[in-house]
Amino acid sequence: MFKKVIIAEDIDAMNLGIQQVLKDLNIADYQHSKFCDDAFLKIRAAIHKNEPFDLLISDLSFKKDHREPNIKNGDELVQKVRELQPDIKIIVYSVEDKSFRIKSLFENAEIDGFVLKSLNSIEELKKAINLISSSDKKFISPEISSALQEKNNFEIEELDIKILKHLADGTSQDEIIEILKTLGTKPNSKSAMEKRLSRLKDFFKANNTLHLISIVKDMGII
């Protein structure tokens, strides 16, 4: 079982629920942070003291305060923590249910578990901690595991992310098309660009391009 745990969660009620789970599992050494930057600093400090954390439990969404954060969301936090401490176990505990985002966490940040915040999430979190502490298996909440196994009609591609990043930087669609042509990236026609953006807007339920950029930024996609 894990000996030392850090929780990254900004909602007090959720924090208390996670702490109770740890107490039920006889894990007495834990800390919590309401901000990603603070959680990262604690993890780094623990490594320097030669007393590293065994497990990170992190939400994905964090409310902003008056400070401008260096690490803006849980996606960035788990990625940076994985790079800093490759052997730490990571469980994401979130309301997020979009399969492409969850897949990205498993593939890119190599998280060990994803627990969906729901009516049964406390028990699922206990199961996740028990499973991950005693094996190399991954845990995924049953509500979303089937969705992850299905082949979606539309999946976010690397080209989509590049286009979204260019748009977020203020690059016009015509300029992006020229950039894609210069790089030899296809499709690079105006009609292909418009179709791709239309599908992205539908997928994210965005009213317009600005709304789309705002949504993907908040979700940590760009």
Rank of each mutant, 00 (worst) to 15 (best):
K4W: 15
E175R: 11
I6C: 10
G113T: 14
I11Q: 06
K23G: 03
K117Y: 12
L148Q: 01
L131R: 03
K195C: 08
P86D: 07
L60E: 10
K42C: 09
I176V: 06
S198G: 05
F139W: 14
D65L: 08
F204K: 02
L25T: 10
S121N: 04
V81S: 03
K103A: 05
D136E: 04
R67D: 07
I102Q: 02
M219C: 15
S58I: 10
Q85A: 08
M219D: 10
S135D: 02
K126W: 13
F154Y: 10
S94Y: 11
R199G: 14
D218A: 13
H48G: 14
G113E: 11
L56R: 05
V21A: 02
I47V: 02
S133L: 02
M1E: 05
D38V: 04
D136Q: 00
N208P: 09
I222E: 13
K181H: 00
E76Y: 13
T182G: 04
I222A: 12
A147E: 09
E158Q: 13
S145A: 12
S146I: 05
P142Y: 11
I156K: 02
A128P: 00
D59L: 12
A8Y: 09
N50H: 15
S134Q: 05
E155S: 14
Y30K: 03
A168L: 07
K34F: 12
A8G: 05
L119T: 12
D65V: 07
H211G: 13
K137G: 03
Q20H: 07
A39E: 02
I156H: 05
L16D: 03
I221D: 06
G170F: 11
K137E: 09
H66I: 14
H211D: 12
D97V: 08
Y30R: 01
G17M: 15
K49A: 13
I90G: 00
L56Q: 05
D37H: 06
L84E: 11
I18A: 09
G74L: 02
K195E: 07
C36G: 03
A192V: 09
N70R: 08
D160I: 02
I27K: 01
I43R: 04
N108P: 01
I88Q: 04
L210W: 10
E158G: 02
I215W: 13
E155C: 11
G17K: 08
D174P: 10
S33M: 05
D218Q: 11
M1L: 12
Q31N: 08
D174T: 11
Q173M: 05
K186F: 04
S145P: 07
R101M: 15
H211C: 13
F139Q: 00
F2G: 01
M14F: 13
Q149F: 15
E9L: 10
